[in-house]
Design a protein around this nucleic acid. Structure first.
Lengths: 349, 349
DNA sequence: TTGTATGCGTTATCAC
DNA sequence: GTGATAACGCATACAA
């Protein structure tokens, strides 16, 4: 025995009662901590006997590895940063759900941060995630320039949704907004509409631009003139949609249909039209975009372009997990689909 | 110089490039790591000179403390677990935003997990948070029995929203659902309605029960008989609201107004009524609950009971921070407020 | 196949 | 005031 007094062990401190450490498991199983670790991570082959003993000990003691310590030691935190824009929007909410569910299955936890459609907030959000040592970052759309984004996240596995950009450890996939918008506009054209107004989202945003392009495509393909007075820019919010309708009507242009770049704006637009005594779909046919859950329950139920936001989220998570496991994620781009409900009708005149 | 070869330092491993450690700051400032730590945490007095030097070094090197290491060493992870039910619901989304914003100001990060209105999921969610060593847990409503909740979170600062329960390190506050429901029902009564239907939320849930009680209160206070046939139970979703209307109408009861326990169900109910050729508010006046953002943009805009979900979230976060700082959070219960829009009107007959 | 030793970046305890 | 030094709980390089 050593004559020197062993230094008093640091008080058990804040470790919650009943929390078992790997070391205790090792002791109980009669093996070394490293062996336990190996079994836990499948890092190396271990004899079946010890494996059994350890697993029994783990069960008996109710051991749960401490992710914090794991993070420090192994450099993995088992957490994935998710940069969303407005966590409270119905659109993002569903995507987050998809991400959460998928990550959970692999033992990862998402860390959600909001960028608020603001470049600076977004940068800060990403920096916060980096400082938390997340194992990867999923970015849903956003304002940050591609260069800055790539620069900020270099080295870290990154999945970007809604933009196309390449880089090492970087995977991006989008949604065919342009095709979706074309489908929406075509639908209106097929119903006999010729004067079709368009409400754009925030054009600083790729999605918004692509949807606008789709609208223009369809108009051109049908040989319809595009009247700039029929186009308004807005911001993807319901309030913005309502405002956009006001601006449109102030121009005293006439139109019989309207394609709105997302469902929330479409709801606002619907109310805006109503305020001017224009009925949907009797006076104006209306098409939205996204097929948010609520689109099914608006009055009237909204014709819109379906993109499964939930699936987009889970796809992103799947891609992330694939990268983390050293694999290569594969694109699984959904094709947009028009969902015809009751906000559109054939032009009778 | 030591003759003994210093053991090759472990390869810089996974530490992201350009990441500075506290030790490097200490070296640059010519002080010991402890001193840097003290300055960072205000743990002890430090001479102004060193303080300046360290702060300069921190700035120059762009040092950011590693929360993971902090978590291991100090037992604090600067993260707060948030148990929500459905992250994608508009209701919870806003609350989460409030929480996120408020925590961010104090350098904390929320970890969101969903309980899915399911006792088992909720337990697992909380366990996941515990294993992550969050510094505290905020629970938004939920299914877990009070006892289990208290048991699960013992020791950890906990804020529970939407339930009343006491305990050490436990703070709970709610919203006066009963009063809110009374206000809603009274409004309808004042408008001359006597046959007022009621759609309840999931009655396993306190909120739902309280809102139902409020409805009953108001009816009783006005001396109106409560017809059980006018009451249906549902589940707080739009789909459920629509279904509830069907069930109600199958009973061939008559009513001129309807109080629905939340806005999402109200939207579903509105559509359900429309399907049966009942117009809101011409044939049926409709009141919702929550004043979700979209309530302003439904057709017609929904009369509802306002509870600032965002504020509830930030209140919860504020309470959490107060507990973490050793203080005692104080109740700041908002009073519900009726927002009259266009889904209700005076009964003319 | 297994154990020992060391380090991850920080805080906390102690002695000076 | 300040600086060594020992944890925190785990993963891993290396030796056995």
């Amino acid at each position: 025995m050593n004559a020197k007094q062993p230094p008093a062990k640091k008080a058990p401190s804040s470790r919650p009662a009943g929390v078992v450490t790997l070391e205790q498991v090792a002791e109980a199983a009669g093996v070394s901590p490293s062996t336990v670790s190996r079994i836990l991570n499948g890092t190396a082959a271990v004899s079946q006997a010890k494996k059994d003993a350890v697993q029994a000990a783990i069960r008996d003691l109710g051991f749960q590895p401490n992710p914090v310590a794991r993070g420090l030691a192994g450099g993995r935190t088992l957490s994935i940063g998710v940069v969303t824009q407005i966590i409270s929007s119905p659109f993002y909410g569903e995507a987050l759900l998809g991400i959460e569910r998928e990550l959970e299955r692999a033992g990862y936890v998402p860390l959600f941060v909001s960028g608020n459609w603001h470049e600076d907030d977004e940068r800060k959000a990403i920096e916060a995630l980096l400082s938390r040592r997340v194992d990867g970052i999923i970015v849903l759309a956003g304002r940050l320039s591609n260069e800055k984004l790539v620069q900020l996240t270099t080295g870290l596995p990154t999945v970007v949704v809604g933009r196309q950009l390449a880089g090492p450890k970087l995977y991006s996939f989008g949604f065919d907004n342009r095709l979706g918008a074309r489908l929406a506009t075509q639908h209106l054209i097929e119903q006999g509409h010729r004067r079709i107004a368009f409400i754009a989202g925030d054009l600083l945003h790729d999605d918004a631009v692509e949807r606008q392009d789709g609208y223009l495509d369809a108009m051109a393909a049908a040989g319809l003139p595009v009247d700039p007075d029929l186009m308004v820019q807005s911001d993807f919010t319901a309030a913005g949609g309502m405002l956009a309708v006001s601006r449109l009507l102030e121009r005293t242009v006439s139109f019989t249909a309207m394609f709105v770049s997302n469902d929330e704006m479409a709801m606002g637009a619907c109310l805006g039209l109503h305020r001017r005594n224009l009925r949907v779909p009797d006076d104006v046919s209306l098409v939205g975009f996204d097929d948010v859950v609520m689109a099914r329950y608006t009055m009237p139920p909204l014709t819109t372009v379906r993109q499964s936001v939930y699936e987009i989220g889970s796809e992103a998570a799947t891609a992330m997990l694939a990268m983390l496991n050293g694999g290569t994620p594969k694109a699984q781009l959904q094709t947009p689909e028009l969902v015809v409900r009751e906000s559109t009708r054939r032009l009778l005149r």
